[in-house]
Design a protein around this nucleic acid. Sequence first.
RNA 1: GCCCGGGUGGCGGAAUAGGUAGACGCGCAGGACUUAAAAUCCUGUUGUCAGCAAUGGCAGUACGGGUUCGAUUCCCGUCCCGGGCACCA
Length: 865
Amino acid sequence: MMTQYRFSDIEKKWQKIWAESNLHKVEENHEKPKYYVLDMFPYPSGAGLHVGHPLGYIASDIVSRYKRLNGFNVLHPMGYDAFGLPAEQYAIQTGQHPEQTTAANIQTFRRQLDLMGFSFDWSRELRTCDPDYYRWTQWIFGQFFQHWYDKKEQKARHIREIENHFSKYGSQGIEAACTESINFTAAEWNVLDAKMKADLLNNYRLAFIDFTTVNWCQELGCVLANEEVVNHPEKGPVSERGNYPVVRKKMKQWSLRITAYADRLLSGLNQLDWSDSIKEIQRNWIGRSEGAEIQFGLESNGHELPPVSVFTTRPDTIFGATFLVLAPEYEGLQALCSETQTEAVLAYANAAKNRSEIDRMADTRKTGVFTGNHAIHPFTKKPIPVWVSDYVLAGYGTGAIMAVPAHDERDFDFAKAFDLEIIPVIKPQDASLELPLTAAFSAKDGICFNSDFLNDLSVKEAISKAIAQLETQRLGKRRVNYKLREAGFGRQRYWGEPFPIIFDDAGIPQMVETLPVLLPLVESYKPTGTGESPLAGVAEWVQTPAGRRETDTMPGWAGSSWYFFRYMDPQNGQAFAGQEALNYWKQVDLYVGGSEHATGHLLYSRFWTKFLFDLGFVGVEEPFKKLVNQGMIMGEDGQKMSKRWGNVVNPDDVCAQYGADTLRMYEMFLGPLTDSKPWNTNGIEGVSRFLNKFWRLFFNGETFELSGEAPTPEELKILHKTIKKIKSDIEQMSFNTAVSAFMVATNELGALKCKKRAILEPLIILISPFAPHIAEELWQYAGHSGSIHLAAWPAHDEQFLTESSFEYPISINGKTRTSITFNLDADPAVIESAVMADEIVQRWMDGKPLKKFILVKGRIINVVV
RNA sequence: GCCCGGGUGGCGGAAUAGGUAGACGCGCAGGACUUAAAAUCCUGUUGUCAGCAAUGGCAGUACGGGUUCGAUUCCCGUCCCGGGCACCA
């Protein structure tokens, strides 16, 4: 009977000892360099964990343990993102308070996480739904509310400073991030009443009340996200759940002015050690484009009409602009229509308003209505018609475009649909355009023609020149535009952070000073049907002596946008984290989590960090220095692991059958961390076999055996190449090849029957980050009283790896034919003559003369004939 | 449509400052130990052709070209898969 290693006893034993001795508790320690390893904290769903969830946790745990062995003071915390919709929906169905279900779910999660032997410092655990936590989420919101963004200084400043400025100088000299730019004098400001001042300041606050268009479902009594709305063939837009009609409705909504930070969010990406794909996703989401804003005066037919500003990235095509198009939601649209066309335009705008986003997206046929009026081309002074069409979006640029049908596909389609003029002004560099155009020529490497002062310039030159000309003639200016929209921050839900806001009798929002504002108990979690959150029904909470409370709650991402700072000092009652802790831990060195948060959590966290940086609370502008996105583990059938497909593998079962160490190593062995890959039950057997083999390296039958015998060069070479390989693999997060290196070392040492302490003991340390329990047990067997996780990482010594000779593959014309061993310091001339004298080489040369002899030292020899 | 990744045995995957393609594991086939099974160990395993065999030839990293003494790796074109964005002017 072979010794079987008893993982179940061993794992239970050590997990208990580690917990009781607080082995993983960490404090600030200025003697050691710090390292902060963070996992994206989980939402504690009722389903518990499946084997896909711990993938990233295992990787981060390996790095944490590796860093500790290398002398780093490692912060490796865990907590729960506990506010959110599923708990609330469960409450609606069962009447159970979300707090109860959340607490129960957290217990399950904790039990499952403990099974896998992670080295989290649980004394720092946090939950976003805990009042001691969310009081600081509310506090940070309050800071957003009390600040505005100064574009000149590129930072957030206190709202009092802009008030002071307004009272002395009006809006003159202020360049602020705002909803709309308004000009007024100090005198005008000073005569405003308190409510009017508050409304005006709302235009500048970083947390402000916005009016946004939402998908409103009367039947469900709530607002729906775009993805919750589907298109019904007869009824039009309906809710995904229940098929109830959905209309677009303007609603008051708290928002955060994230666009103020668009520039910095974009440029900050360059310094981050993140995957290119996720940086690219954020770049696209921010969507910076450079171009010009151009003013078009309108032909007045008797009465004066306001000018229309358009945004374009192609001012070089200005001479090809043959009409303007306004969005159906264009501000002041009605005033721009001629009398005869007003009715048609308004009918069109109204129809467009109720078309769902998806509908508008899916349908690329061009529709539109002529306003009946003309604009004046800024250079040619010719009149060009002004149209309205829903292919122009109100929310981007100015909500109006100059259409250049010859060089923009959409404008081309529109011009064809309504028989509008098409004037080509850009031609390919080395050819002329084929006329008439059958499609827009939108290449950006052409040459201008038909374009007055831009003729013969390249597109790039023409863009600069056109802007310069527009600026000198005061017809327009350079402008940078972003796709990024303000971040809607209010939810008509119960299970979230209440806003620390009370509207006083004048309707002015006032910051609540005493935090936290506790989430009150409600009787029903159901939507009220009025568009308000269930909190609106708690009269005694809503009505306060100071006024009426805001009844919306914050979105799921509020609590997760700053939790990484709270871990640094989780019990602090005076601040979201103390200065000392913030200065010591600074930022997350390694962040591991899924890529699905690219445009949500990861962007918002960067935004909040930059804001807290501006206020001087934190010393870093970026929260996550290095980010690694682990892939998904699919079911054995290749589909996403889900109850629905019946392919879920539970880590509890795997731990019971094979042990946590096997599960950990197997998940790492599956393939590169960042790839998605299927689970394979057979594969885990191989890793289980390996760990047993590893265990047996140390045993002779039933007895543990380590000898003090001096190791041979061959054994030393195996050890040192393994140390080197594991170190570099962990640092590159190539865990699958690290596991394979352990297998190779075990196979080789097993074959040599090596039982020497000098070789095997360092090997236990190497494997301890991967398989912490078995390593701890073997370490104890080896006679150590302290934990292996407090040991030091062995250093590899190159001298054991250097070879004196090398077996050179010999290729003739690039095809390997034989191999000959030479000393590495042998004279190339000697090698050449030896190779040329070789029988096999001679045979393949077949009497042809030698053309070239290539020797790459320690690599290859190639004979060219 | 645009922007990122990526295509290597029966399977998961190794190997890229260009240098012996297929490490490691799974699966499969054969063998040892055993009354038997489990466990463990050993051998083989890209395809194909020749040979009783040891062995050897040819082809081969999605496809077609190119650069090079030499290409899975670099360049150009095509196809396919995954992800992101999408009437963003």
